[in-house]
Design a protein around this nucleic acid. Sequence first.
DNA 1: CACTATTTGTCCGTATGTATG
DNA 2: TCATACATACGGACAAATAGT
Lengths: 267, 267
Amino acid sequence: MALQTARISAEGGKAQRVYLLLRDEITRGDLPPGAVLPGELRLADHYGVSRVTIRRALDVLAQEGLIDRRAGSGTVVTGAAPQRAAIAADFATLMPQLVQMGQQTTARLLSYAYIPAPAPVSDALRLADGVRVQRAVRVRLMDSAPFSHLTTHVPDDIAQDFSETDLAGTPLFRLLERAGVQVDHATQSISASLATPDVAEALEVAVGAALISLTRVVFDATGRGVEHLAALYRPDRFRLDMVLNRVGKAGARQWEPVLVPMTGAAE
Amino acid sequence: MALQTARISAEGGKAQRVYLLLRDEITRGDLPPGAVLPGELRLADHYGVSRVTIRRALDVLAQEGLIDRRAGSGTVVTGAAPQRAAIAADFATLMPQLVQMGQQTTARLLSYAYIPAPAPVSDALRLADGVRVQRAVRVRLMDSAPFSHLTTHVPDDIAQDFSETDLAGTPLFRLLERAGVQVDHATQSISASLATPDVAEALEVAVGAALISLTRVVFDATGRGVEHLAALYRPDRFRLDMVLNRVGKAGARQWEPVLVPMTGAAE
DNA sequence: CACTATTTGTCCGTATGTATG
DNA sequence: TCATACATACGGACAAATAGT
């Protein structure tokens, strides 16, 4: 569990910010295992805080086993990212590939309601004002470890027969097919954002942690918007990987993404 | 300028975290212009802080013109994202498309050195231990507004004739071509991370802000690693957009990214 | 036109975290 | 590591402004 994380986020002072930054650098591989950290004094100067604050952050990192501190020797990075067999997503399909067999993803439905479409959603889906949509918030887990927080909006006439158990068990993609929607094309935008308290709790991360943000808008053959997805992914458990192969001769700077065959089926 | 930002990051307590979270939700469009924020008391409860702390965060947001507060009425979101004509990147090429003509990107060289390859770099490029590489850190700006922080590693035998002025002016892609490298394929991984003090200063954001993180490894025709790029992008000034078109008939859940012709040439 | 509920604005004393030496 | 001085966060109380009844 994220007991330590919870306790730290409850404190939530400067020490936790430094802790988050250092942990981010370690789990990202920027500070690989074996690397020696600068002295506490240098760290204090670099982060603009005092040694005591640096010390508190290092205390937590040491308690989590990420670093090893030895008097006189210095502080070295021991364990890298927990490397919880991160899920890699195929770029084109955005269906996560389960890197290891036997690992399954399940979904947990957090909320479920029919509401008038919020402005950003109705704009993206090109809906008229006041159109009602089904809003579902789900968390997807792999081996009972959450890795994605999904907020979907679907026009209510399409989502009429999406029951709660449907949403908990079936990918929305399949549900749209079942509803007779002819999915045609989609637009995606990838960004980064911070974990707000509610998603932080759902994803079991600290408030203020970095998350991958993906917004996808799906249209049917008639050009009608049928789904709006706002997804947040834990960077330590989810990756967006792609391979680029050069197309054409020298001078033609164009790349072709390699399409990986889809095996999993999740969002 | 980022004067206010600098002052806040100097304070750096809970108030700044709440400020960052709220600002993130506003600039992301999650809280669109015209939306009314919950009362300060509710916000305090939601973020697990006291009302005074919420107040401090709202003070800064109001000072920046993002929200408008009226006693008795409430707090409404006024200005959305600065919408500084965000740069959209073509997915396949990762060359940013300049949305408006006349906008040009320039690069500023922050550091430049020949060093033994760090472990993550030598691993990714499949270099032998101790191989020396050229490390260059650059910031790319559009209309003198920084949007990306680029750290590149290139084996020194390739980078021999990359001068400082070359690096400041020419995209590394072109420099590789000039060096006779036959670029063949590349792997990319997209994630999210937090702004450390050094990149925060370079990108003119607050420490702890969310950044898009992109790691690219380029190989030549012989399978040799020729470039390692670690890029950090400001989410408010850079987007990763893609269009997905469905390939095949119903039931074939495969997508094809649309390749947009490249116009710009930057990293 | 009052009356009420809610919200922002302002002040206080206290507690805790942080900086400094 | 400890002790002291300072900055920040907290919780409460109260006033002023707004909107609806």
